[in-house]
């Protein structure tokens, strides 16, 4: 059953239809929020808040076809609230401490530029995630959100433009400059090709 059919059933009083919708979307929204906030517990909280807000306001959604954009907009606004609430810096320093797979704590830069080992071979998936997460946090928030929406959520540029209520060309421009900024951030961390195996 399509999302919009589930929405109509929910509006008609069928809560189970909403639960189907939640089940369909919760992983996607959780991963989006996690990539924006960078913390699993925060991501779970915000995901839960997102669906509560969706539950309360779904009846007000005019164009049911735009559910995807709408739920992302709610999640994104809640992420921004969370960032503001925690006064969390949108970017991080390369001197930020991280914990490696061996349990050792070291600065990100030292961890990533450690020449004693072949990093590309030794990094576990969790560490790769950590590096990307850190890299993403080093670029401006507005560019990071566009990259996450496009790269991980698979939204069209037009949808991202609707969600962020910014001109289409601004979104494309943020994508372009965001990817370049991310590359520079990773280059600064000296993890270029050693870390990522490009599949070109």
């Amino acid at each position: 059953m399509e999302d919009n059919q589930l929405i109509l059933k929910f509006i008609d009083g069928d809560v189970q239809a909403f639960n189907v919708l939640v089940n369909r979307w919760q992983n996607r929204i959780y991963n989006f929020v996690f990539k924006v906030l960078g913390k699993r517990e925060d991501a779970k909280d915000v995901t839960q808040k997102t669906f509560i807000k969706v539950y309360k306001n779904l009846r007000k959604l005019k164009d049911k076809q735009k559910f995807s954009a709408w739920i992302h907009q709610i999640a994104m606004n809640l992420c921004r609230d969370e960032i503001r609430k925690n006064k969390r810096s949108p970017t991080i320093s390369i001197h930020e401490k991280i914990r490696t797979s061996t349990g050792e704590e070291m600065e990100l830069k030292d961890f990533l530029s450690d020449g004693s080992t072949d990093i590309a071979d030794e990094l576990f998936q969790g560490e790769v995630v950590e590096i990307i997460r850190k890299g993403l946090k080093m670029i401006p928030e507005e560019q990071r959100i566009v990259i996450i929406m496009k790269e991980y959520q698979g939204l069209k540029f037009r949808e991202i433009s609707d969600i962020l209520q910014e001109p289409l060309n601004t979104i494309k421009s943020r994508m372009y400059y965001g990817l370049n900024a991310l590359r520079k951030a990773l280059a600064e961390l000296e993890i270029d090709k050693e870390v990522f195996q490009y599949e070109l």
Partner: peptide, 15 residues
């Protein structure tokens, strides 16, 4: 393309 491919290594995880 290289940067985009690198991002692709952060796989989706179960909530």
């Amino acid at each position: 393309r290289e940067t985009s491919a690198a991002l692709g290594r952060w796989k989706e995880e179960d909530a």
